[in-house]
């Protein structure tokens, strides 16, 4: 892979941030403040986090928790895809469906869904079902809404081309609407990753016994900052990786879309 200059800058920036954190921590450790405020109970250094990472990996604790979170993420996310995309398509193509569902979608979307987590847990218990459901609630809306917008904003002139050749409604759908909406749908999938990760963590805070969210919460309760940061870093890394992979897929499936975006940016005189 060719490293672009923007990626080089990003890498340098992250590296500098970590270095600054390490140096700051070391300076702090030498001062009297460190003892006076028992800072080691609240803050760890990058080196400390790395050591803790290796430790947790060794005991198998990290993998167990990561696996539990990953399973909850996967179930919830896939369910969100399976519901969000078809529902978005139906709402965009059939007016009646939109009339019936829009008030529900709008109002549930507007509520802070974190508030629903305790309710879901008292209804469905502490198991994987509740976790997946909380993840689902976070992830489904970006997918649904972006699919809806994607299908709604399919270009009329392209539809007309297929119609002019005597194409059927199904041909219009599969030859124009689907491919034209795919970039927007993938954008929805990308946004949903972040929401799903939040869902995982929130679900695991409300009393489960496994998962990265649980691990973060548990270690913070006993004032061990290093494992807490390990959990956070793993969550960040996972979210970022999924986001980047989906971006790659988007570029690969719809190279024309990227071009179109860049052209629009140029048109606005930003660049």
């Amino acid at each position: 892979m060719k490293l672009r200059s923007s990626q080089l800058y990003a890498f340098c920036s992250i590296f500098a941030g970590i270095a600054l954190w390490q140096i700051g921590y070391m300076l702090l450790a030498r001062s009297y403040l460190f003892e006076a405020f028992a800072i080691n109970l609240f803050l760890s250094s990058p080196v400390g986090v790395a050591q803790s990472f290796v430790e947790l990996l060794g005991t198998g604790e990290l993998l167990t928790h990561s696996y539990a979170s990953f399973i909850a993420f996967s179930y919830g996310y896939l369910l969100a895809v399976a519901v969000g995309i078809p529902l978005g398509v139906l709402m965009a193509t059939i007016k009646k469906v939109n009339y019936y569902l829009d008030p529900w979608v709008s109002s549930i979307y507007a509520t802070p869904r974190v508030a629903l987590a305790p309710v879901i847990i008292i209804w469905f218990g502490l198991g994987i079902f509740s976790k997946a459901l909380i993840v689902f609630l976070g992830a489904v809306f970006p997918i649904l809404l972006n699919t809806y917008t994607g299908i709604k904003s399919v270009r009329e002139n392209l539809i007309e081309v297929v119609e002019a050749f005597g194409g059927s409604t199904m041909q219009v759908f599969f030859k124009v609407m689907v491919p034209d909406a795919i970039p927007a749908i993938i954008t929805g999938l990308r946004l949903a990753v972040g929401r799903a990760v939040i869902g995982v963590v929130v679900a695991e805070w409300f009393g489960t016994e496994a998962g990265l969210g649980y691990m973060v919460y548990d270690y913070s309760m006993v004032f061990q900052p290093a494992p807490v940061f390990v959990g956070i870093v793993v969550l960040i890394a996972f979210g970022h990786l999924a986001f980047v992979i989906l971006e790659r897929i988007q570029r690969w499936i719809s190279p024309w879309y990227q071009f179109q975006l860049e052209k629009e940016v140029e048109g606005m005189g930003l660049e």
Binding site: N157, L158, E160, A164, F165, P179, D180, W256
Partner: peptide, 13 residues
């Protein structure tokens, strides 16, 4: 009938 559109209306994908 063959229709030639004003904006080429090619399918970008």
């Amino acid at each position: 009938k063959g229709f030639v559109f004003q904006d080429s209306s090619l399918l970008p994908w």
